[in-house]
């Protein structure tokens, strides 16, 4: 067992686990995007950054790939960490504003503006589909191609792959495929509907379960009713 400190809390974790595993085991929330329990950690999105070390030697590392070490001092919610995460989410929104997963993250971290030029890409290069295809579907039909700004995920020679069984695993796991609540052509780059929401429908009607999650629809609906 390894003993380390997360947010001032002394914790004990099994050998071979990462900081993320340790934090999640003790109920400390670290946001992730490119992490999935069934797939190998990849460290692409960097949203899971945490601060380790003390004083001047403190540095940001991705918790999903950093192994838990004895005596490690981890801060998961320091100012530096939250600021870094906010910039990362801003960049993700600028890259793919049509993704619900990205918009939800932006709302959860209270990102209220995007300072970067918004490009409507349909891929954030998180590599989830590539790992899904290789590790869970045992196909290896898709992968990263080219490099730098031309990097993209595709099949060999952009043609239908011989090894692809069209299982749909890549689309199932893709965080960019799920469109945001207002659809792909929303007027604003940032949704932020969830920021304004108190779970009103739950307050008003005791027996209702909100199957939509926190989409903001019920809030607007309630406002309309009140106006009438």
């Amino acid at each position: 067992m390894i003993e380390l400190t997360i947010d001032g809390l002394p914790v004990l974790v099994e050998e071979g686990s990462t900081i993320l595993d340790a934090a999640r085991f003790y109920g400390i929330d670290i946001p992730t995007l490119c992490h999935n329990d069934g797939l190998t950690p990849y460290g692409a999105c960097r949203l899971c950054v945490v601060e380790i070390g003390k004083g001047e030697n403190a540095k940001l590392v991705s918790s999903c790939t950093y192994p838990a070490e004895p005596g490690l001092v981890v801060r998961t919610n320091s100012k530096r960490v939250t600021e870094a995460r906010k910039v990362l989410v801003e960049l993700l929104v600028a890259m793919c504003p049509s993704s619900k997963t990205v918009q939800d993250l932006a709302s959860a971290m209270e990102v209220k503006k995007v300072r970067f030029k918004v490009e409507h890409n349909d891929c954030i290069l998180c590599g989830l589909c590539v790992r899904m295809c290789e590790e869970q579907m045992m196909a290896k039909a898709i992968g990263f191609v080219n490099r730098g700004k031309d990097r993209k995920i595709t099949t060999p020679f952009d043609m239908k792959s011989d090894v692809c069984r069209t299982c749909g695993g890549c689309m199932y796991i893709c965080p960019a495929c799920e469109l945001r609540c207002q659809g792909p052509d929303a007027e604003t780059d940032l949704c932020n509907a969830c920021l304004n929401v108190q779970p009103v429908c739950l307050k008003e009607e005791d027996n209702k379960m909100c199957f939509l999650g926190t989409c903001g629809w019920c809030y607007e609906e309630l406002g309309r009713k009140k106006k009438k």
């Binding site: 898709i142 490099r147 099949t155 060999p156």
Partner: peptide, 11 residues
Amino acid sequence: PLIDVYSLATF
């Protein structure tokens, strides 16, 4: 896998 050869050749 062909995709590995292809991504290396394009990299």
